[in-house]
Design a protein around this nucleic acid. Structure first.
Lengths: 239, 239
DNA sequence: AGCGCACTCTAACAAATGTTAATGCCCGTC
DNA sequence: GACGGGCATTAACATTTGTTAGAGTGCGCT
């Protein structure tokens, strides 16, 4: 059941059976969330961290004028709020973008891991560091990439991340986001989001229909995105 | 000498003398960097992490078209590349925006801390989590705030962060960024950056001259920025 | 004092992006 | 099979942001 987590953490460094057992021991109950439901509420102080077993979720903030901005997309194997273990108070919400199956890890047991399992602690820490690296890449995309390149970069990133947890199908993957939701990822209006998707389609590097993205020309898509996966730390090495 | 680090880490939770000694013991040699020098090069694999004792630095990425985007600003007391301890390879560069006095912490000794000092480990981990929280706030600002609000938010954030490490002077602080550099923070053209600064000045909430920012109306500045410092985790509580 | 240089600021125009509104399509419900 | 709602798409127009160019300003250097 925790396979996606093992795949996610294991991509960076070997994960021993003892460590897997520790992780499994930290888990408590499971739960399902429907589309649009808040998995974690902004302002709350959770006592557990949430691992996605299946589905797509997103961190977001809402401004006074009603504008919403997603700050990350979370795929199976991701702890959506591992940071709350130490940050304590959620400064943002987390919403289910597709039906989500999640499992909760008790903070008290995560704390025990930090007391007794230094290597596993470093891997969990690393997981949040990759989170930060993705954030930085998003900042660059928002600030200095063309919108087409930004979208292409997002497609590259999601494809690679989903591939790690075996959620791709050949060169395709399921992306259950409406264009309005995508607009809240890139920080665009819905109308312009539609234009940008159209532009990327027109170049012919992806086909995009029925919430399924198929990469037709991986090489050229990476070129358009200037995608360099270094920031995802997918190299397996001692940490 | 490590006072800014103690202030920075100590804002989140109490830091014991033993822990301060461990941190001090991790430090090796110091160094000065001139404006514009790279403190850490993109693509490198550092074996130490860099703590800013004095000065202002920034993380950045450069795109093929020459565009540069800063992904964070680093003030005294910040580890600019603590993440490289586990990420291993730098996926971005770090440049000195003012003359910088730094000190290097050996990764091997940081690793020893993770083996022997769980609470201090959590505080260091937390430091990188706050980093991530700041990134998220930047993403929101870039995607959904007006440019004036974005700039106001940046001023609020820097003021609060500098205050923690005692680098403010009443309601003023030194901000040695040219408008071209600021443009690379907000992701704007230099011309438009100039317009936005003019707009914020015109509202009368800040005065801004000679690289010194003075907040004239803190309350209204926060309103314009919708600034809520929760994300900086400045509450002192057990972690 | 004069020069050169980096930086700020402005103007005029071009391009990108947002807003409002309308149309068509798909799909589930009655 | 008709109806209604959410979503994708497009058009027309408004606003924001970028580009290019140049003038003004302060400051260190000779």
């Amino acid at each position: 059941m925790l396979e996606p987590l093992y795949l996610n953490l294991g991509q960076h460094d070997a994960l021993s059976d003892a460590e897997k057992a520790l992780l499994a021991g930290a888990m408590t109950f499971e739960r399902h969330f429907a589309i649009g439901q808040d998995i974690v509420a902004s302002g709350s102080r959770p006592t557990y961290s949430t691992l996605i077993l299946d589905g797509l979720a997103a961190r977001y903030k809402v401004l006074e004028n009603g504008g919403r901005q997603f700050t990350s997309l979370q795929v199976p194997g991701d702890f959506v709020d591992l940071h709350a273990f130490l940050l304590k108070t959620m400064d943002h919400g987390i919403v289910a973008l597709s039906p989500c199956h999640v499992i909760f890890a008790e903070h008290s047991r995560l704390r025990a891991i930090t007391e007794e399992a230094p290597h596993l602690t470093r891997l969990l820490w690393l997981d949040t560091l990759v989170d930060g690296a993705i954030h930085r890449e998003w900042i660059v995309a928002m600030g200095r990439r063309s919108k087409t390149s930004h979208l292409a970069h997002l497609v590259c990133e999601l494809f690679v991340r989903l591939q790690v947890v075996e959620r791709t199908n050949g060169m395709s993957f399921h992306l259950p986001l409406s264009q309005a939701e995508l607009a809240d990822v890139l920080g665009l209006s819905v109308v312009h989001m539609n234009r940008v998707i159209g532009a990327l389609r027109k170049v012919g590097v992806v086909s995009w229909a029925n919430h399924t993205v198929t990469i037709l020309d991986w090489h050229r898509l990476q070129e358009i995105a200037e995608f360099d996966p270094t920031y995802l730390s997918m190299m397996r090495e001692p940490r």
